[in-house]
């Protein structure tokens, strides 16, 4: 019999046979020959939808401040919009730790961008060679695609909002599969189903987005945040909203509250809770 400490409290091999560790991760003696390595199979702490709309001189982007642990509303002060520079803001849905990883990646990219002198310009942020939202989206989508090709995806859906090199409004998405997509209005997660149809009613195409004012864009986004709070059980009523404008730069508000909620519609919902009919 094995009396060594590592065998204490364990089923005896001579009675039950050798312990079968096959279900354990690779690092703990799992991974039988012939079985594949496994990386992240599901996200853990997650953020829900991110919404964004292009308007005539910029982009509005919003996401709530909740990080859920499964269905538990675990963290309520998590800011999921990251300002890269005065031309680009990134909104993150999905796994929060992967978001933090990407945020550090963006920080080191920003430090590197800062190395190169800005020519004759005093203010580096007003440099004509400043990294644009389009450049940043290309970079991030390459990162996402590389990771999914290694079967080790970053479990996020991103929206990159901002301006192109020529200061035109820019909006595009990238997700854990490395898929990219661009449209005048975008929404990730549950928002893709609930908010996107509403946003498309306001902004059906590029032309409509060129005619849209900043106020109307903000209004549409706020309305959608409200609808999402009504119907998305992983959402909350505090959110962040950022506006990237070619004239005024980035305006980020981190702790906004939903206004003018009306739960009257809830009365008509049947099939949940304690109602019987």
């Amino acid at each position: 019999m094995n009396h060594l400490p590592q065998a204490w409290g364990r089923p005896r091999d001579d009675v039950y046979g050798a312990y079968n560790p096959h279900y354990l991760p690779h690092s703990h003696g799992g991974h039988q020959a012939g079985h594949p390595n496994q990386h992240t199979q599901s996200p853990i702490v997650t953020g829900t939808s991110v919404l964004a709309v292009k308007y005539n001189s910029g982009v509005v982007i919003a996401a709530d401040n909740l990080a859920s642990y499964g269905s538990l509303a675990r963290f309520t002060d998590v800011h999921r919009l990251k300002v890269f520079n005065k031309k680009a803001v990134v909104g993150f849905g999905g796994d929060v730790s992967d978001m933090q990883y990407l945020d550090r990646l963006l920080l080191s990219l920003h430090v590197e961008e800062n190395y190169a002198g800005s020519g004759d310009v005093d203010d580096k942020e007003s440099d004509v060679a400043l990294m644009s939202a389009k450049n940043l989206h290309t970079y991030l989508s390459k990162v996402m695609y590389k990771r999914r090709s290694e079967f080790n995806p970053l479990w996020n859906a991103l929206l990159v909002a901002g301006l192109t090199e020529s200061n035109e409004p820019f909006l595009a998405s990238a997700d854990l599969l490395g898929t990219t997509f661009s449209a005048p209005t975008l929404a990730t997660g549950f928002g893709a189903h609930l908010a996107q149809p509403i946003l498309r009613r306001v902004v059906p195409d590029e032309e409509a987005s060129k005619a849209l004012t900043r106020e109307k864009a903000v209004e549409a986004v706020k309305e959608c945040m409200k609808v999402l709070f009504y119907r998305d059980a992983r959402s909350m009523n505090e959110y962040s909203i950022a506006i990237v404008d070619k004239e005024s730069g980035v305006d980020l508000k981190l702790d906004e509250k939903l206004e003018g909620q009306s739960w009257a519609f809830a009365d008509r919902i049947r099939g949940y809770g304690t109602q019987t009919a």
């Binding site: 190169a116 060679a129 990294m131 290309t138 390459k142």
Partner: peptide
């Protein structure tokens, strides 16, 4: 061009 979709700066 591939990673950032931008022409490299000559200074760089």
């Amino acid at each position: 061009r591939l990673t950032y979709d931008r022409p490299i700066l000559l200074s760089e």
